[in-house]
Design a protein around this nucleic acid. Structure first.
Lengths: 343, 343
DNA sequence: ATGAAAGCGCTAACAC
DNA sequence: GTGTTAGCGCTTTCAT
């Protein structure tokens, strides 16, 4: 096998291509960026040289000139046991689709809003980032306010919760997902359907709760004493399930705000010898690997679609003729109910 | 609140700073990149102006001149239920630590070696990537061969398995992790300790198997009929556990090659009314969220350390005076046994 | 120790 | 439709 060899052997530039095709550098540039300005003959001749020499424009030159980097920044959430999977799948879809459009995704980390804004500043001034994709939107989000104020292109995966900033966003309709799940359980004959949720006040949690509410309401099912709120953990989900089972008229189905909580309920049922899917039903949210592993039905977010939608939003912001800023887009995607053994 | 405002208001350049500090652009550049060449007085004066104007060098200019982008590319694995968590934690640590050293991480995706090499090419020629971090090394890895042949700086998280390419790598000592786990079980009094592993031939799986082998060997414990090999899934782990339990002299402990397999064993034991941690023991590998959720003991990879080590390797490759390529580094990190209820 | 000149690769603006 | 000129922000080289 050959040993290492310098990779700097031949590196065609615009100049090289121009010379070989007997045109000016500008014409080569036009073939690439504004082909309609070039006559067919010239265009083909230049394209042939480009293909033969495997010429590729150097981004740094373009960036220096145009202030566009074709780089999109994405924040990487601090590893909290629960978010990793969703984050990973979204990121993968986003990166893969961005590549198709000639963009690359750049990662950054930040512990809080303030740190994230500092990250924006340095990303912007150093690498001329074209746009940002934010996740984990929350009430009083300083990040979106800052970006909006600076007129920097961005989109959030997660709708704004009481935000002053006008911006494009993409989100998954949690209420609709939970509604579908609850309806399914009701259709199966369940008449006492419990909801294991997060404490009130988190936009996402309240949204999912609303879906359960709507389903029970439309079927005129009881709701009193069937809601338990807790932090997001298996242990708490398990305890909540136990608590409900001990009540006089226990539920037969458990709709859960997350897979962690649902797995807790699942564990409690199993421990009591109650087979999920037979004598009782459980549904989670997020379609995690663990859910698939134990056969837990769960509401799956369309992460690939969400990523594409985010890129569409950015496209509209970035490829817009300057000054002509169109209205922000809002897109709510429907999740999909993944049915497994637990229902 | 104020409406959006153009962010192009003031953008100090070297020129700006030079003028305000009454020095040449070159001196400002030296203050930043070679402070020892500048007299104390001048340096302080220039630094003051830099601070006041919040000047930051534009990477595109530097990159154009020096062919260094301060960008490190990392491949994002295709979402396979199992890898997401490890990948996410490694990526987070890598990005966070890279930022501290003035580097940013750029993501790319690729379905296979060939596609990944094409990604290298375009990343290199377009964005002048400084280095690559690869994961998921495997036998006959074309990626490392290519990078090595092109003399491009890179490091792998995962040791080379029969590779011709000489390169720096960082890996976690799976054998040592499983050895520690098995020893722990033996110390607890278990005399028939089973190993649930992957099919032979995967470097990683064989490595972990070797740890179990060594522990049983040193304690003169039986090994015959105590190994079951399977694909990585909960279902197969469960079946394997059931199969072993039905044998004449069933094992009392199960050392597993992954959390997925271990969770399968855990599920089978629970279903049979055998309490993991009481009448039987189970240990997994990777310290996944699911393991923490159900109280499964597991071997945890030191992902943060691994990320730092990868960056150290890259540092040595990148900051090296040209031509003076030091020998590749190899680093095997010890994992940590996370003890929970299942043992 | 500091400054001046040149040029990295590219495209905007304008001339023809 | 094509070429010429200028310059994006930075660092290398060389002169002082």
């Amino acid at each position: 096998m050959d040993g290492p060899v310098s990779r700097r052997s031949v590196r065609p530039t615009l100049e090289t291509v121009a010379r070989e095709a007997s045109v000016s550098r500008q014409t080569v540039s036009n073939v690439l960026n504004a082909p309609h300005l070039v006559s067919d003959g010239t265009r083909r001749r230049v394209e042939a040289v480009i293909a033969r020499t495997a010429y590729r424009p150097v981004r740094a030159g373009q960036t220096l000139r145009t202030r566009r980097s074709y780089l999109i920044a994405v924040g990487l959430a601090t590893p909290a046991e629960d978010r990793a999977e969703v984050e990973h799948r979204f990121l993968h879809a986003l990166t893969e689709r961005a590549e198709l459009r000639g963009y690359r995704t750049l990662l950054y980390t930040a512990e809080n809003d303030e740190a994230e804004i500092r990250a924006f500043e340095s990303l912007l001034s150093e690498h001329d980032l074209d746009a940002f994709v934010l996740t984990g939107t929350h009430i009083d989000d300083e990040r979106t306010a800052w970006l909006y104020q600076q007129a920097i292109p961005f989109v959030t995966f997660g709708r704004p919760w009481r935000s002053v900033a006008q911006h494009s966003w993409v989100d998954v309709d949690g209420a609709s997902g939970v509604l579908a799940a609850t309806r399914h359980l009701i259709g199966l004959g369940h008449r006492r359907v419990a909801f294991l949720g997060w404490p009130e006040g988190s936009g996402v949690g309240d949204d999912r709760h609303a879906g359960w509410l709507a389903a029970c309401d439309e079927a005129s099912l009881p709701m009193d004493g069937l809601v338990v709120r807790m932090e997001n953990s298996l242990a708490e989900g398990r305890a909540a399930c136990a608590q409900l089972l001990q009540s006089g008229d226990p539920p037969t189905a458990f709709v859960c705000v997350s897979d962690a909580v649902a797995l807790g309920a699942w564990a409690e049922l199993t421990a009591r010898g109650i087979q999920p899917g037979q004598q009782a039903a459980v549904v989670g949210f997020d379609d995690s690997a663990a859910a698939a592993l134990v056969g837990l039905s769960s509401v799956a977010q369309p992460l690939g679609e969400a990523a594409v939608a985010c890129l569409d939003c950015l496209h509209n912001l970035l490829e817009q003729p300057a000054g002509n800023s169109s209205a922000p887009e809002r897109l709510l995607l429907d999740p999909r109910l993944m049915l497994r053994g637990s229902t």
